[in-house]
Design a protein around this nucleic acid. Structure first.
Length: 387
DNA sequence: AATTTCCCCAACCGCGAAGTT
DNA sequence: TAACTTCGCGGTTGGGGAAAT
């Protein structure tokens, strides 16, 4: 079906915002709240697309935006969360990528890597997904590459390995393929993390593999296709996460025979609830989180106006006025919240650590090198619950 | 001091999901 | 159920400042 442009482009201004425009937007949102971005610019007297207004607000004018460089803990959080996603994506796609390396499927895998910046941003109070994405692409990504780590998979870079031998050996004897050993994943990734990532293979496959299988007519290919399709064309009831344990074993030809396969595939060991998330939180995240943590006052001196006027903004989506500085109770660091809540879920971060890189040399100030290989996740965490 | 190159990040774009009629 | 709207997300771009020459 057709899709109308978000706004009439004629006569609408693009490019950098002027202070006057910003003030108009701020004034309007203070009075009327945000929402209905399509009509907002007209009502606010702005010659801007509603989308542009929304982006300007969410990425720059919002009163709870934190500015300045990322702290060590913020960077740690970004890398850790990104790695969780990367590994899970890797575990989902790599077995099939081996079979379809020269197939459009591989392009799909590469092009459709989803980093869920917004989910990461939800864990970093005052940071926007755009800011985190930029920071990743301009700083962290480069550093990982320098370290010989693929920033997409967080595993050793494939182009630095003998990929041809990997492929040939894998195709020669699929049943004996041990991907984790070939890529050294086991040595690089905490086994708990591997287990964790593996646990949401099933739910990921339903949502994503099914899509690309359909899109790329994988039925033309012989390897694995029958098993894969049988699985992915199951009724949508399989989206119920409770069904995941059996699905992993449904595609034997494509399964990953990890050295600890039995453990990896035993999804039952993951609890179905989050009653222990606080326990996990205390291990995986900075320890000084508090239930009543209140984000820092908004660093909003953009026009040196009274902060008082910028802190309370009506959120039309809520029946009552929301306050960006409201207490956030029950802020367990759950993946459910990571994935599903664009709203800020403040996590207080340590700021007293000093980074020393692998060589023992203090890193450049803006270049915290994460201890990315030491991230620990307790097995009480079930990633499926936040999908 | 002038010019070129590099880098960062605010903003834009297209897409898809969800909601509405 | 289809058509359409709205919103939010991730990828990409390009202007401008910093650094290098």
């Amino acid at each position: 079906m057709g899709r109308s442009p978000c706004c009439d482009k004629n006569g609408l201004k693009k490019g950098p915002w002027t202070p006057e425009e910003d003030q108009k937007l701020i004034d309007y949102i203070q009075k009327h709240g945000y929402g209905n971005w399509r009509t907002l610019p007209k009502n606010a007297g702005l010659q801007r697309c509603g989308k542009s207004c929304r982006l300007r607000w969410t990425n720059y004018l919002r009163p709870d935006i934190k500015r300045g460089r990322f702290s060590f803990e913020e960077e740690e959080t970004i890398i850790q969360l990104h790695r969780i996603w990367a590994i899970s994506e890797f575990l989902v796609y790599f077995p099939l990528a081996l079979f379809y390396f020269y197939n459009p499927l591989f392009s799909y895998i590469v092009l459709n890597n989803i980093y869920r910046w917004s989910a990461i941003a939800a864990r970093l109070p005052g940071r926007t997904d755009n800011e985190i994405k930029n920071y990743w692409n301009t700083h962290i990504r480069k550093r990982l590459l320098r370290m010989g780590i693929d920033p997409v998979t967080h595993s050793p870079r494939l182009d630095l390995l003998d990929l041809s031998s990997i492929l040939s050996s894998s195709l020669y004897n699929q049943s004996q393929m041990n991907i984790s050993r070939l890529l050294g994943v086991n040595s690089l990734v905490n086994p708990e993390l591997l287990r964790l990532a593996t646990s949401f293979i099933s739910s990921q496959r339903e949502n994503q593999n099914h899509k690309f299988i359909v899109d790329h007519n994988v039925e033309d290919n012989q390897l694995c296709s029958s098993q894969v399709q049988d699985q992915y064309q199951q009724p949508s009831m399989q989206s119920n996460h409770n069904h995941m344990p059996t699905q992993v074993q449904e595609i034997p030809a494509c399964s990953i025979p990890f050295s600890n396969e039995a453990e990896l595939m035993n999804m039952d060991q993951f609890p179905s609830n989050f009653s222990h998330l606080n326990d996990w939180q205390s291990n995986a995240m900075p320890s000084n989180l508090t239930e009543n943590y209140v984000p820092l006052p908004p660093n909003y001196d953009y026009y040196a106006t009274d902060h008082h006027h910028h802190q309370t903004v009506k959120d039309p989506s809520s029946s009552e006025t929301s306050n960006f500085q409201s207490n956030n109770s029950n802020q367990s660091f759950s993946f459910a919240s990571v994935l599903s809540t664009p709203s800020s879920s403040p996590t207080q971060l340590n700021s007293n650590s000093t980074y020393v890189n692998n060589s023992g040399i203090e890193e450049e100030p803006d270049s915290y090198c994460s201890n990315i290989l030491k991230f620990e996740i307790r097995d009480i965490l079930d990633v499926n619950d936040f999908m």
